[in-house]
Simulated assay, not measured.
Amino acid sequence: MLRLDLTQEPRLLEIETNTRQRLGEAQRMQWLGEVAGLQESLRHIADKKQQAERLRAQADRGEAGDADLG
């Protein structure tokens, strides 16, 4: 099972930036299938960012436990 590693959050932000750039190009070129796929990727990235926020909040409160990627 995959686990979210908060030290990798900067990489997640890089992936998000790259995906948004690719989405802009796909929209300009009217590559509708690519647009749909990239939008789905951005939804998953947003989910991972929310998971990271929850993990950070738990760590700040001193709660133990593992966070699984879903």
Score class of each variant (00 low, 15 high):
L6P: 05
D5Y: 00
Q27V: 08
H44E: 14
Q39K: 15
L6T: 12
L2V: 04
G24D: 15
E53L: 14
E14R: 08
M1Y: 08
K48F: 08
A57C: 04
Q21D: 10
W31E: 04
K49C: 02
L4N: 05
P10S: 08
E40Y: 03
L23G: 06
Q39H: 07
M1N: 04
L4K: 06
E14I: 02
L12I: 13
M29N: 07
L55M: 13
V35T: 06
G37M: 11
R3Y: 09
H44C: 08
A46C: 10
L4Y: 06
A46D: 14
R28V: 00
L55V: 03
E34N: 10
R61N: 02
Q30P: 00
L42C: 00
Q30S: 05
E25Y: 13
Q27G: 01
Q8K: 09
V35Q: 13
D5H: 00
D66C: 06
Q51L: 08
R22F: 09
D66Q: 14
G70K: 04
A52Q: 04
H44N: 13
L4S: 03
A52H: 04
Q58M: 05
Q30G: 00
L4D: 03
E63Q: 10
L12Y: 09
L12R: 13
Q27T: 08
A64H: 12
A52T: 01
D66V: 15
A26M: 03
A36G: 01
E63H: 08
A36K: 10
G62F: 07
K48N: 05
L42P: 01
A67Q: 15
G65P: 07
E9F: 13
Q39T: 05
L23S: 07
A67D: 12
Q50C: 01
G62R: 09
R61G: 00
R61E: 06
Q58C: 01
R56K: 15
A67K: 09
T19F: 12
D5S: 00
W31T: 00
A59I: 11
A46E: 15
R11Y: 10
G62D: 09
A64T: 11
L2K: 14
L6F: 09
E34G: 03
Q58N: 05
T19P: 13
A57T: 03
E16R: 15
V35N: 05
G65W: 15
G24H: 15
L13I: 02
D47W: 15
R61Q: 08
D66A: 13
R54L: 12
S41V: 00
N18T: 09
Q58R: 09
R3M: 07
T19H: 12
A26N: 02
D68V: 14
L38D: 01
R20M: 04
E53D: 10
P10W: 09
